[in-house]
Nucleic acid binder design. Structure first.
Length: 433
RNA sequence: GGAGAGGUGACCGAGUGGUUGAAGGUACUGGUCUUGAAAACCAGCGUGCAGCAAUGUACCGAGGGUUCGAAUCCCUCCCUCUCCGCCA
């Protein structure tokens, strides 16, 4: 495609059966949903939602009754020549119906709008509060102290070039060069091999997704100024911030077989993030950039499986960092830092000898039925019942950050870098770079 | 990008504006038959919303329109396929 065609923006499609949380659940547990939203820091009004729901349902009932009448009248006209009286009746109903259908449409749109803003409820063991209340649940490895910043370390070796990245693209774009680029590939190969051995289905994925997929997976809509996503002008698409987005959409509108679940996918993609407003924070170098590569784990499963699978995904992440011998701790993320889709989230933070603190390395979330409901992903049970599936995602390796963790923990005093034993077979058996 | 042909249920595939939620076939499920299996035969078999249920209603790519009534007619958009062009 040589030119970008400019199309009229597609009017937002309100899909009424695709609500963020199950409205039935909200009707029965309004307080729980209201409290959960508050603890996550979302300003939503459940009372207003329920009122809107009532209006919508009442209008739906009136509409259905009118349609029934209309259908009955036209059924009488089948075959013979319609009588003028019947046609007159039909016309009356038509007018009445179009009036009430307009009101119904408005009510549906209003309802959908409110529903969009309702975040998923949390698991019971999620700490309530802001980021600082996240709970450390495990530590591993020996924390080192004192190391050279990875940017300084890498630039001396001609491994990393932010200056030219800025010249060619902009701030926070970079080139990886020489051994560092090879090391990135080695980490990727190492992690990919592990996931394949664990029977994940490996996929490369679209690097752009449409608005429905993006919003369904829980990524901010275009209208959100705070959005971390890059949108393609005139295309109604965004560059993915993670393979989670295209992986979530993979089974959209499908009814899966119970026997096929759980499904485990590994998706590899570049990740594009605007990171607007983060320039002031301590994010020097590769730790927070506009583009990086990531291997992501993703699972579709039965509701009763998701809690265990969440632990399983976390265990795989830990296995990766243990084999790479990077000290870390695992934290259970507090409600205020969970985001809308997640019911529970674990982060792994590695120990940074440069900063003398833990810094985020990976993250895995149980989104329960939130994403699946948005994107209409269901399962047919053996008994024939149809239910919304649960989805989970977790970082296998986020490459840029992984490099930071390794450089900080494996550097030698003479300016060289040891290669983690687990990676040596992917680095031509080199032990020191 | 140009020209043409299409988008119907898990899949294939009928469908004249009203008798089509949708023929027929395949797959699947249950049953009969059989030592067992296959075959044959009988029956069942979409999703959402409302309802205890009966049932009502909506959905034939999406959105609008015409009509008393639309899977069927009109418009716009999306997607797929074939040929041409271009290209890793």
């Amino acid at each position: 495609m040589s030119t970008t065609t400019v199309r009229l923006a597609t009017p937002p499609q309100i899909i009424y059966n695709q609500t963020m949380l199950d409205i039935k659940y909200i009707r029965e547990n309004p307080d729980a949903v209201q409290t959960a939203a508050k603890n996550k820091g979302y300003a939503v009004n459940i009372a207003e939602l329920l009122e809107s729901d009532k209006t919508r349902r009442d209008l739906q009932g009136e509409t259905d009754a009118l349609r029934e009448k209309r259908n009955a009248i036209s059924a009488q006209m089948k075959g013979g020549k319609p009588s003028p009286e019947l046609i007159e009746q039909g016309k009356l109903i038509k007018d009445e119906l179009s009036h009430i259908e307009n009101r119904l449409r408005e009510a549906d749109e209003n309802f959908a709008k409110i529903m969009m803003g309702i975040p998923n409820v949390m698991a019971d063991d999620v700490p309530i509060g802001g980021e600082e209340l996240s709970v450390e649940i495990r530590t591993w490895g020996e924390r080192k102290s004192g190391a050279i910043d990875h940017v300084d370390f890498c630039e001396k070796r001609d491994w990393l070039d932010f200056e030219r990245g800025a010249k060619v693209a902009g701030a926070k774009f970079y080139y990886l060069k020489n051994e560092l680029a090879l090391l990135e590939n080695a980490i990727y190969q190492f992690a990919l091999g592990k996931l394949i051995a664990k029977n994940f289905t490996f996929m490369t994925v679209p690097h752009m997704v449409n608005q429905r997929t993006a919003e369904g997976a829980g990524f901010a809509p275009k209208s959100d100024k705070e959005s971390n996503e890059y949108f393609i002008d005139g295309e109604n698409m965004m560059l993915v911030g993670t393979a989670e987005a295209p992986l979530t959409g993979y089974h959209a509108d499908e009814i899966l077989d119970e026997d096929d679940l759980p499904l485990f996918y590994a998706g590899y993609s570049p990740c594009y993030r605007r990171e607007a407003g983060t320039y002031g924070k301590h994010t020097r170098g590769l730790f927070r950039v506009h583009q990086f590569n990531k291997l992501e784990m993703y699972a579709f499963c039965l509701p009763e499986q998701s809690a265990d699978i969440h632990e399983k995904i976390l265990a795989i992440e830990e296995e990766i960092w243990q084999e790479l011998e990077i000290p870390y701790h695992v934290i259970n993320i507090a409600s205020g830092d969970l985001g809308a889709p997640a019911a529970k989230k674990y982060d792994i933070e590695y120990w940074s000898p440069v900063d003398a603190k833990y810094r985020e390395l990976t993250s895995c979330s149980n989104c329960t039925d939130y994403q699946a409901r948005n994107l209409n992903i269901r399962v047919r049970r053996k008994n024939g019942a149809i239910e919304t599936v649960h989805t989970l995602n977790g970082t296998a390796v986020a490459l840029a950050r992984s490099l930071v963790a390794i450089i900080e923990n494996y550097q030698l005093p003479d300016g060289r870098l040891r290669v983690p034993i687990a990676l040596q077979s992917f680095m031509n058996e080199m032990e020191i770079l």
